[in-house]
Design a protein around this nucleic acid. Structure first.
Lengths: 144, 144
DNA sequence: TATTGTTATACTCTATAACTATA
DNA sequence: TATAGTTATAGAGTATAACAATA
């Protein structure tokens, strides 16, 4: 696709990354469907490590959605027995999310599935993969 | 976040890319809000170049959604005068989407906004950016 | 018969605002 | 008062199935 505008051009590395991201984004609904979960449910399960309770506020932040949304997402996962709400010890306003044994199994499947690199990346030579990891490591090393 | 599972490890380049994608994905709703459009509406406008009619079926394919969804997305953009439906010449079942003059202006703003690389990429040295573009170019060159 | 786009339906995600129970 | 989570509401995206017009 032509992404020119007014004669200027998108930073080339960024444009390629953007294309890759679009391709990957298209993969997500399919992965979600395989696991019989929605993309947001997958994202949330990914966030909750076993024996690492996550306050709902943190979960909303991690999913980049409003606090009012997390309620429904948690409702649906809890209804399926994959996570549980528990009152926090010190602050009784807070509820923490804990992954159940069933949830942990589903989470393993999610991580396993997401760990598969998409075709374009998997195809790269070992050298290119190493260089890519180095550069991206530098890019992400210094949090803005 | 720890993405280990069963002792194995996500391909490192892919893991970094994935993190970068999550960060970028979080940027989208904000960009959409700026332009007073939804993410899908932005995606569709991006797809329709001026004087390049796009059949609705192609649009659905480009957006990676079902044919039944494109109807509503087009409805909302058409209601705002940004695109138009027109019957196709040869096959009267087909409708093509054309961007209006107003739509083209909004599209320019979208492309301009999306062209800004996210912080982590923008910070990279020119050499790293060049190398990154080379590697990603190789990755995407050979369509699977 | 097959295909394109639409409609009807049902569910998920989304933000805003008002509410509750705590702090 | 301020904060964490909930509820109510309204809008947008999602897939499935049934449908009309056309091929």
């Amino acid at each position: 696709m032509n992404l020119d505008y007014d004669g200027a051009r998108m930073n080339q590395a960024w444009q390629l990354l953007y294309d890759l991201m679009l391709a990957q984004r298209a993969r997500m609904p399919a992965i979600a469907a395989e696991l019989e979960l929605s993309p947001m449910q997958i994202q949330l399960l990914r966030l909750i490590e076993p024996d690492r309770p996550v306050p709902m506020g943190k979960a909303a932040c991690g999913l980049g959605c409003d606090a009012s949304n997390i309620t429904g997402i948690v409702d649906r996962l809890e209804a399926r027995g994959l996570i549980e709400r528990r009152p926090a010890d010190r602050d009784r306003r807070v509820k923490v999310l804990v992954i159940t044994r069933d949830g942990a199994r589903v989470r393993e499947a999610i991580l396993r599935r997401l760990a598969e690199p998409p075709e374009p990346i998997a195809r790269l030579s070992p050298e290119d993969q190493r260089t890519l990891a180095e550069i991206l490591g530098r890019a992400l090393a210094r949090p803005a």
